[in-house]
Structures are given as C-alpha cells and as structure tokens.
Design a protein around this nucleic acid. Structure first.
Lengths: 127, 127
DNA sequence: TAACACTATGTAATAATATAACATTTATAA
DNA sequence: TTATAAATGTTATATTATTACATAGTGTTA
C-alpha cells in the first residue's frame, strides 16, 4: 500500500475521524486552515482515496465515509445502511451478502466487476 | 394509479422513449419547446415520478430512466446494471435477488424498507 | 355552489456539487 | 540523472439542485 500524499492524508484524516459522511464542500471548509483552498484539490484527493479504497462515496448523499472494513482495499463491493431520519451511515460487512452479490449473474449471464448497494431504513435510535 | 399532470406526462414520455438514462438538464433542454422553461419544473416532475415509481434515479450517474419493471409501482427495491464504457443501463428484475435483498437483515437485526443496488461492468457489446 | 385543502405550475434567484484548462512541483523509477 | 508519473496550485466555469414566493388548477365536502 502506497503512502498518501499530503492533501490525501489531511482529507483522509478528516473523513476518518468524522462520525458521519462528509460532503466535499464541508471538507473544503474544514481543511482551509491547512492550506487546501480550492474545490479541485479536495475532489482530486477524494477521487484518489476512493480509487484506492480508503474511502467510499455514498452516492445517494454525495458524501464520503472512511472504509470501515479493513479488508476492503478497493471499492469494488460496497454496501451501506442509511438511516433516513438521522442520516447515520454504516458500512455493512456481511460475507454472505458480498458472496451473493459478487457471484450474481443476470439473465444474460453478465457478471459484474463492481457493485454498490445502499439500504434505507430507520436506525435503532430513530425507530 | 392517479393520472399524471401535464408536466409530469411530458417528462415521463421523454424519459420513457429514451434509450438511455437522461439527466435533468438534458430533459430541460428537450422540453423547452413544450413550455417547460425552468429547472425547478423538471425537478418537481422528476421527484413526483420517482415517488410513484414511474422512473428511477441512477444515483451514480445523476440520471433518470423509466421503470422497466411493470410490477414496480414504487421505487423501493431497485437494481441496475451499468456498462462502464457505453453507459447503457438496464433495470434488473430478478426475483431471487429482490427476495434476498428485501429479506436481508444486518447484524443488529435491522431490516430495511428500501434499497438501491447498482452493478458495474461491461455490457455484451463492449466486452 | 362555496369554501377548503391539496397538488401542480410559473418565475427568478441562488446554492451546492463537480470539472476544465493550464502552470508548476514533487516523487518514483530506469 | 533524466525521464515519467503523480500530485499540487490557481482561476474560471460547468453541472446539478433548491429556496422563496406568487398563482392556478383539481378534488372534496358542507
């Protein structure tokens, strides 16, 4: 595993210690004191961090969370639970789920190289 | 099933006859000749169409496609295959997949009211 | 019908999310 | 060391989506 660059490390640290997913401009606001001034600097670091699997993008929220699954080096097979009230997001690590989806073939026999699954519901607290 | 309003019908017809997912501003451009002039008019119709399950949003693409699954009245359980080259999107209707996911419970026993799954790979033509 | 609630529409302005283009610097490897 | 790739810095701009406010249509029901 390569080391992270300066900007990548700053942004990863911020996301990693956050309790909830962070949006790009929230990240920008937070790292301006560290010298990262422009959106593009944030998006470039985010792109790289997603590419190497250190963070994931929650597509339905346009937000980013740190990978909570140490074995997940690359974002090829991701599943999340999202509370529709408090917006808490948890990465699901279920061997049976990932096995099922990784092996899933559609009618045409098409096999996929990647998937992203987002579940929505109410978390314990909000129920 | 309620009838669609004028704007909803115009926008649904456009999406329904499109071979690929349409983005909101592409829709706007296409319906300007029919009197829909502002983004908000498009987004309002899209929101409603998604709500009643006539269309689905492809979250990773910020684009919309007509529901290809006649039994899918509400967008509660959606799965798509997306070609990473030609961007063709197909709605997957697999009884076993939807059964598996609808019944999926995480470690905490949390059951979900909704999910969205996006598979990525190469379609037949692009392989 | 009249009153009401609800849904949809129209319009302008603006917020939020993301990328293009170009110049420069730093890290890595041959 | 020289070449190459990766990362950075900066400005401008493109794309996606919402707020706020005014008006009009639709359906119920008293």
């Amino acid at each position: 595993m390569q080391n992270l660059s300066k900007n990548q490390q700053i942004i990863f640290d911020l996301i990693d210690k956050s309790a909830e997913p962070l949006k790009a401009y929230a990240i920008l606001f937070n790292v301006q004191k560290k010298g990262i001034k422009a959106p593009l600097q944030v998006y470039r670091a985010l792109d790289k961090l997603v590419e190497i699997g250190k963070i994931h993008k929650i597509e339905s929220r346009n937000a980013f969370i740190a990978c909570q699954n140490s074995s997940c080096q690359v974002s090829k097979a991701t599943a999340f639970s999202i509370c529709e009230i408090c917006e808490k997001v948890t990465e699901i690590s279920s061997a049976s789920l990932s096995k099922y989806l990784t092996n899933f073939k559609d009618k045409d026999g098409m096999k996929y190289s990647k998937y992203n699954l987002e579940f929505f519901g109410l978390c314990k607290k909000c129920r």
